[in-house]
Design a protein around this nucleic acid. Structure first.
Lengths: 114, 114
DNA sequence: GAGATAACTTGTAAAATGCAAGTTATTGGT
DNA sequence: ACCAATAACTTGCATTTTACAAGTTATCTC
């Protein structure tokens, strides 16, 4: 969540950008659930609030992991899509999901995420 | 950083436990640098502060990812070691490191981490 | 023209973080 | 025996971030 790098370590740098409880959930929603609109992200069961969602989407855009485009001008509607760097987070999310499924009881892939 | 689960999704649950800027750096230090003692973790270049380190170590222990043992009783010295569930985070850290190296400029694996 | 929807922004209390300083127990040196 | 040093923390407090609710702006549908 900050552009300041604490060290040159790639793990530390990645955590500087993505190390919080919300950012990767937005990426998950885009990558596995095909979500693209502000209101769609709000529907996820974790219940992100609007101000956090707006700030994370802005930051993801600034990082170049997400592209924001108007997909309709009348009315003005926005959509958010993963860029190639954003899509390349798939192995990270995959590894996290595999770990969670194995190590945390009662976790499961939601039906719509398959 | 909280035991409360926002949803049954394994990605969300993993982020509930590990989704912050410090926890996985401690795991990195144990896994790749062989660090085991409180003062060793403090030496890492990211500069974690003592209160945060103590709270994260406690939480990692409560989660069963780390075991704390006295390795000497006179004087009393503690060491921290990864449990099997903790060690199973290796693919997650690997994927994060690969992503960071590829996508974030000027990142590199520190010499002592090879 | 009235209510609904999308995409946000603003305000504020509560929680987490960062930084410095202090604590306790033990040890090694003179 | 005393004194500085070290390990492993804890405490206090200012700053930052988060969570929750409410409000805003533009357009659309009936």
């Amino acid at each position: 969540m900050t552009l300041h790098r604490r060290s040159p370590c790639p793990i530390a740098c990645t955590l500087d950008l993505l190390g919080d409880r919300w950012t990767l959930l937005i990426v998950r929603d885009m990558m596995f659930l095909g979500k693209q609109r502000f209101e769609e992200f709000l529907e996820s069961p974790e219940g992100i609030s609007t101000n956090i969602l707006a700030s994370r989407l802005k930051f993801l855009e600034e990082m170049g992991l997400v592209e924001k485009q108007p997909y309709s001008n009348h009315p003005r509607r926005m959509n958010y899509q993963l860029t190639e760097p954003g899509k390349s987070l798939r192995p990270v999310l995959k590894a996290i999901a595999v770990w969670g499924l194995k190590q945390i009881p009662e976790t499961r892939i939601p039906d719509d995420e398959i």
